[in-house]
Amino acid sequence: MLKELKLPVLRNRQLPVLAGIILIMIVVLSFMSPNFFKIQNFNNILLKIGIFIIIASAANLIMITGNLDLSVGAVFAFSGILHAYMSKHGVPIAFSIGITCLLAMCWGLLNGVLVGKLKIVPVIATLGTLYIAEGIAFLIARADGGSNIMLGLPGNYTSFGRYMVFGKIPIIIVFVVIAFFLFLFIERKTSLGRFSYAVGANRSAAELSGVNVTKIIMILYVLCSLMAGFCGVLQSSRVGLAAPNVGRMLELYVLIVCVMGGTRMAGGSGTVIGVLLGAIIIGLLENGLNLLGVGHFAQEVGRGVVLIIAVMVQKNSRAVRS
């Protein structure tokens, strides 16, 4: 199986370039800041981008079909707060995680119905979901009596998110690895993955080949919301608090990471390996800017600029090829 997974990587010219950029960034940052090349710092970077990688792996498949999901941030926030609320009010933690993930999938189902069945432009449809999910996240926080949920959480609330596998690997990193391989597996080994590429490459041909396009799109949206929801739980459990506005901008990160990783916005190509590399680049970039003392708000500007550059690079590389 390893051989099968390797083959397409070598054919993809974008991935070596991304890997090269990462190497250069590491070298440059090591020279520029003495605090960079430390285990602790890498750990920080991974913790920061872990969430993006997990969600973007799923969102990437949606983008491969030529659609997109802007509601991931809201679903992320909704799930965190719901999990916190339930845990605080006596629902056993494992049970609460399960329910939260199920409800998170409902948001994906809503997206899937709107985009796949009713054929509504994905930008608008998922924007609508973003609103509703975020509104409800705020309402849950309010029902609890505050703007966020922190006090009164059970003592073992954080034990899931802060769990160290083998005593030293944060659990989130384990999930990143699992998600990466899961989506690599879906992408390469399942008909779901294969059909996702087909839908993005030529939707009409996919339909005429008997592919159930609506079903594929619905499954992918549900999967993506599940990942966003699970990450919401994970994050809230790790930091020991849940706020209804934590997911803002997450959709942008996810978008940037996918575009950066070489996934075409129009669909048909892209891989989770690119997503991983793209996320690492973003992580290094932010980390570097932090170490160099660039302000938080200026970084926000930078993110928008990076999005523009990533799209432009992609458009150019395609123009050269054709």
């Binding site: 087909a198 030529n202 041909a205």
Partner: peptide
């Protein structure tokens, strides 16, 4: 086998 190979037949990127 559809009439329009490009728009309805092939997945050209694959």
């Amino acid at each position: 086998i559809p009439e329009e190979r490009r728009s309805d037949g092939i997945f050209s990127m694959l």
